[in-house]
Amino acid sequence: MQRALLRLDQLNWSLAGAFLWAANLCLLAMLCLTTATIALRPFGLALYWMWPWTMVFFIWLSFFGFFALYARLKDIRIDFVAQRMGRAGMAMTRIVADLAALFLAACLLAQAPMVIATSTGIYDGAVLPSGGEVPRLFLSVPLFLSTALVAITALIDLAKMAVGLPENTTLPHLEP
């Protein structure tokens, strides 16, 4: 049981790495697009789709990053109160943090069908090579994907706790 959970945790950690890379690539794309915009300007060249695409990458960067920062523990956590309360405090707050993440994720995911049904239309100017423009729906997809994975991460941690495994820490013990 413990071994299976650890394996699962490691998988989740790697998946968070993939999302981190997705966020990195979005950032890199923003950097390149804006650089190109500046570089082309003296030649009087301006490709109108560059700016809308920069915005799309910016949105994706934020939403892909949500899961990555949660699972890879890049978010800010205040632990001096918990540490004051000793082991019991750390255990109690571990449960609270996981439950809060689960509650939030459940509330957001419950809205996914509604959001999918109502976000019709396109993102103006973000043209696709195949013609047409990026559907608005695609903007929120990474958010719901990340939210679902945040929930899974919290569940894994609760399961780990149940079988007596310690929580992950910011130390890169899982990094290859």
């Binding site: 009087g44 109108y48 700016w51 809308p52 103006d124 100017g125 043209v127 423009e133």
Partner: peptide, 8 residues
């Protein structure tokens, strides 16, 4: 050189 909003 005319400014336009992002409407195709």
């Amino acid at each position: 050189k005319l400014r336009m909003h992002e409407s195709t």
